[in-house]
Write a protein that binds this DNA or RNA. Structure first.
Lengths: 330, 330
DNA sequence: GACAGACTGGAAATCGCTTTCCGGGAGGGG
DNA sequence: CCCCTCCCGGAAAGCGATTTCCAGTCTGTC
C-alpha cells in the first residue's frame, strides 16, 4: 500500500508538505513543490488511509443510517433521501439493517460510535419496550457524549432531533374520509402490538371513529409486513372497510382477498399508509396516507448534521389520497 | 471520549493488558486483572476507536457495497443478501448509491479503498464505455494491489470474482417460451443502448427468435426504470408480445397499456426479467425470468471474502416463470 | 534443590496522517 | 541599512489502538 511517506519521498519533500498539498489544508504550498507532490501522488496511485486521517483529525466523514429492512420500500426511500444529502456534503454512508431486532439497533449504534461516524440516523419505529428503549438511549447518550450527532425518524422518544410523521392525525384523517363514504364497520390490520408506529396509526384511526360516534373497529394484530397483512385479512369478518397500518400490509391484504374471490373495492374497501412509490402501478390503486419519505430522510440527516444546541422535533403531516381501493358504501 | 488509556488507568493496569482483555487477543490475562479491566470499561462506557484499531491492525471489519439505486428492488434484494452474510461474519457495511453515474462508481471504489475496507461488492450492470471501464479497472486494481478484495454482480469484465446472471440464456429461454405460445410479432423494451445487462438480454432474446426463424423484434430503447418502460410501451406498434428487459420497466409498460385501455394479456402479452419480490402481488401477475437475487448478493460477497487465488466466475441461471401477463396467441 | 520452559504483565515501537512549532528567507517600512 | 513581519518548508509530537519484545513469576522435572 502506498503511503503519504512514499509520495513525499518520491517528490523529495517532507511529509508535512505532502499532506498539505493533498488535502486542502489552510496552509499554502509553493507551486513547484505542489506540482511535484501531485505528480508523485498520481504516479504512485496514492490513496489516503481514511482510518489514519480519521484518527489524526479526530473526526470522520462517514455517517450511519440504521434501518429495519432495506428491502422494504419505506426504508429504502428514507435511506435514499438521506443518502442524497450525504452525497451532497461529500459524506460516506454506512447502512445497517436490523431486520427488526432492537438489539441489533443498539449494537449498530455502538458500532457506529466505535467508528466515530459524524452522525447517525435511526430510521424506523421505536418499540414499546422500556428496557430496550432505555438501553438504546444509553448507547445514544454515550455516542453523543463523545460529540456524535443523532437524528431519528419516528417517535420522539430518544431526546434527539426527530422527524416525526403525524401517524395519529394521518390515520384520523383517513378514518374521517372513509367514514364520509358511508362505511361503519371497520377493521384494522394493526401490526405488532409493541410497535409504536403501528400502535399510533391504529389509535388515531380508532379514536377518530369513536369521535364520529361509530362503532369501534375490529383490531387484528400481526406482522408489520406483506405476509402479516395477508394473514390478518382472513379475519376481517363483515367489515366493509379495512385499514392496514402500512402499505405493504395492505398489499398483502389485497392479495388475500383476490385469492379468495373477494372483490376490492366492491366487496370490501382497503386503505394503507405511507404511499410507497413501488405501489404506484398497483391494481386496484391503493388509498393511503402519503408521507414524503425521501424528504423525511433528507430532513432528518440535515437536522443531525446541523449543530443545533437544542433537539428539534419536526412533525410531518400525511395527506390522505383516495384511490380505487375504496368506494362508497351504501 | 474515553480511550483505552483511561480504562487502563482506572483499572490500574498497562495499556497492553487493557487491550488484550478488551479484544480477544491470543494472549491470556489473569482473571483478577481481566475482571478489573472489564469493570472499568463498563463503568467508563468505553467504546474502542475503530479508526485506531483499523490503523493498528492494518485491516478493517468493514465491507463496501456499491449499487446503482437502493430504491430499486433489484438492488435492494442484492444488497440485503450481501448484508446478511456480512452481519453473520460480524462485518459492518458501507453502502454507496451511484444513481447510475459510472463516475460515482469509480469514486466509491476510491473512497472504499481509502477506508481500507476488507472487500468491495460492485452490484449492477457494467456499461459499454471502454474509457469508463478502463478507469474503473485501474481503480479496482489499485485497491486490490493493497490487499483489497472485490467481487461483482454482473458482467465478467473487471477480472474479479463475479456472479454473472445468465442474461442471454434467460432471455433466450423466455423467447422460446413465448414463441411456443404462438407469438410471432415481438417488441423489446430494451433500456439504454450502453447498458450491458440490457443489451445482453435484448440480444439473447433477439438471437433466439432468429434461431426459430421468426422475424426480428421491434427494439425500443429508453431508460432502465419504470418511466422508461412506460414511455417505450407507447411505441410497440402491432407487436402481440412485449419483452421488457427488467421487471420495473415491465411494470411501467403495464401501466401505460392500462391507461390507454389496452388489455394485458388479451390485447398484448408482457414479460419482464428479474422476478423482484415487490411484484409478487401485481395484477396481472408478471411473466418473467427469475433470478435468486438475495442469493446472488450473498454469493458475491462470499466469493469476495474467500481468499481465492484465481478469480472465479459463478454463472447463475434464470428460470422462466409464466404468469398471467402473457397468453397464447392464436 | 536447581534449571528449563511456560505464562503473564508492562514498556515501547508502530500504523499513516495531521498539525503545531520552529527556523530561514524574502519583502517592506522606517 | 536594519528590523520586523509574513510565508513557506520541515521536524516532531500526537491521534488511539495493537503487538513485539523483555522481564519476572510459576510450574514441573530430574
Amino acid at each position: 500500500m502506498v503511503t503519504l511517506e512514499d509520495v513525499a519521498k518520491q517528490a523529495g519533500v517532507s511529509l508535512a508538505t505532502a499532506s498539505r498539498v493533498l488535502n486542502g489544508s489552510t496552509r499554502q504550498v509553493g507551486a513547484s513543490l505542489r506540482a511535484k507532490v501531485e505528480r508523485a501522488a498520481v504516479e504512485l496511485g496514492y490513496r489516503p488511509n481514511l482510518a489514519a486521517q480519521t484518527l489524526a483529525r479526530g473526526a470522520s466523514n462517514v455517517i450511519g443510517i440504521v434501518v429495519h429492512d432495506l428491502t422494504d420500500p419505506y426504508f429504502a426511500a428514507l435511506a435514499d433521501g438521506a443518502m442524497r444529502v450525504a452525497a451532497d456534503q461529500g459524506l460516506l454512508v454506512m447502512v445497517g439493517a436490523t431486520h427488526r431486532d432492537p438489539e441489533q439497533e443498539i449494537a449498530y449504534v455502538a458500532s457506529l460510535n466505535a467508528q466515530r461516524v459524524r452522525a447517525v440516523l435511526l430510521a424506523g419505529s421505536r418499540v414499546d419496550d422500556p428496557h430496550v428503549t432505555r438501553r438504546l438511549r444509553e448507547e445514544v447518550a454515550r455516542y453523543r457524549a463523545g460529540g456524535g450527532r443523532v437524528a431519528c425518524v419516528g417517535q420522539d422518544l430518544l431526546e434527539v432531533d426527530t422527524v416525526a410523521p403525524a401517524n395519529r392525525e394521518g390515520a384520523a384523517d383517513l378514518a374521517r374520509s372513509l367514514a364520509a363514504l358511508g362505511h361503519t364497520r371497520f377493521a384494522v390490520l394493526a401490526g405488532p402490538a409493541g410497535l409504536l408506529t403501528a400502535a399510533d396509526r391504529c389509535a388515531g384511526f380508532t379514536d377518530a371513529l369513536a369521535a364520529l360516534g361509530l362503532p369501534a373497529p375490529l383490531v387484528i394484530h400481526g406482522a408489520f409486513d406483506r405476509d402479516g397483512g395477508h394473514a390478518a385479512a382472513r379475519e376481517t369478518g363483515d367489515a366493509t372497510c379495512v385499514f392496514a397500518v402500512n402499505d405493504v400490509m395492505a398489499v398483502g391484504a389485497l392479495a388475500s382477498y383476490r385469492e379468495r374471490g373477494i372483490r376490492v373495492p366492491d366487496d370490501v374497501s382497503v386503505a394503507g399508509f405511507d404511499d410507497i412509490t413501488t405501489l404506484r402501478d398497483h391494481v386496484p390503486a391503493l388509498t393511503t396516507v402519503r408521507l414524503p419519505l425521501a424528504d423525511m430522510g433528507a430532513k432528518a440527516l440535515t437536522l443531525a448534521l446541523e449543530a443545533g444546541e437544542r433537539t428539534r422535533v419536526e412533525r410531518v403531516a400525511g395527506e390522505v389520497v383516495l384511490r380505487q381501493s375504496v368506494r362508497r358504501h351504501e
